[in-house]
Write a protein that binds this DNA or RNA. Structure first.
Length: 257
DNA sequence: ATGGTTGCAGCGCAA
């Protein structure tokens, strides 16, 4: 049995006391982090290592940054999407307990039609091309992260208000669908097909959390070999309601591996 | 409501 959680932590240093309490209480085997917002030498390694985790980071100054924490040894680490020239730290991949895992922070895109939006669609294309190669290995593989795309209207608190807006536009959804249609399983939706309030992110602004105005933009995508062992998938909403929380909730799954 | 809140770095930018 292995527990894997993805979490856009929105600054590992700002979140550290909360994060350590959460890590100690939940004790997941693997944590995929996004938006660590710390250079590698700023990452609070010792405090996390004291809780018996190995750490692989791919950070940059101020923005972005991804990491993999694991109770098992971390091997074969790759930083950045192979074949994609990118000066932003948004992808890290490694092998843990014989299973390949990756943490991805897809660009937000800011607004439909902007330069950042073009970069987002380009990023998704390159991610898909790389994953297509990985899937030829026919191994258990898990790609978790903040995709900044709500796959369907079902994943949005007010689909009409968000119609064709950033996070929900058709090209973004097509980009994510192309990735999923390589043969990946959206773990959370697969186990909760009808659930309406299945959100992972609530804006800090406008009382979104209090009003449960959320979106499902963080996903755990599993290869067939991983999905065959999927026994649970969930959103850890409790920690989102705490003081000094990230604007994203952790999304976890359990695999009988 | 082109608003609202948060983190970083150093008061604008990204989300």
């Amino acid at each position: 049995m292995i527990n894997i959680i993805t979490w856009n932590i929105n600054s590992i240093r700002s979140r550290l006391p909360l994060f350590l309490l959460w890590l100690k209480e939940k004790g997941p085997d693997v944590v995929l982090l996004q938006e660590t917002k710390a250079m590698d030498d700023q990452f609070p390694r010792e405090e996390i290592e004291d809780l018996n985790y190995n750490i692989a980071t791919y950070g940059q100054k101020t923005y972005n940054g991804v990491a993999i924490l694991s109770k098992f040894p971390i091997e074969d680490i790759t930083c950045g999407i192979p074949g994609f020239e990118d000066d932003q730290a948004r992808y890290i991949e490694a092998v843990v307990k014989g299973m390949r895992v990756a943490s991805v922070y897809v660009p937000n895109g800011m607004a439909v039609g902007s330069d950042k939006y073009t970069y987002k669609l380009d990023f998704l294309d390159h991610l898909t091309a790389h994953v297509k190669t990985l899937l030829t290995y026919d191994e258990a593989f898990l790609l978790g992260g903040d995709y900044n795309v709500a796959p369907q209207d079902q994943d949005v608190y007010d689909p009409e208000e968000w119609h064709e807006k950033i996070l929900c536009s058709t090209p973004e959804r097509e980009g994510l669908r192309a990735l999923v249609y390589l043969g990946l399983t959206d773990a959370l939706r697969a186990l909760h097909p009808q659930e309406q309030d299945l959100y992972t992110w609530w804006d800090y602004r406008g009382g979104s959390w209090q009003n449960n105005e959320g979106m499902r933009i963080d996903h755990l995508l599993l290869s067939a070999q991983a999905a065959d062992h999927l026994t649970d998938a969930y959103v850890d909403r409790d920690v989102r309601g705490l003081e000094k929380s990230s604007d994203h909730a952790p999304v976890g799954c359990q695999l009988s591996l």
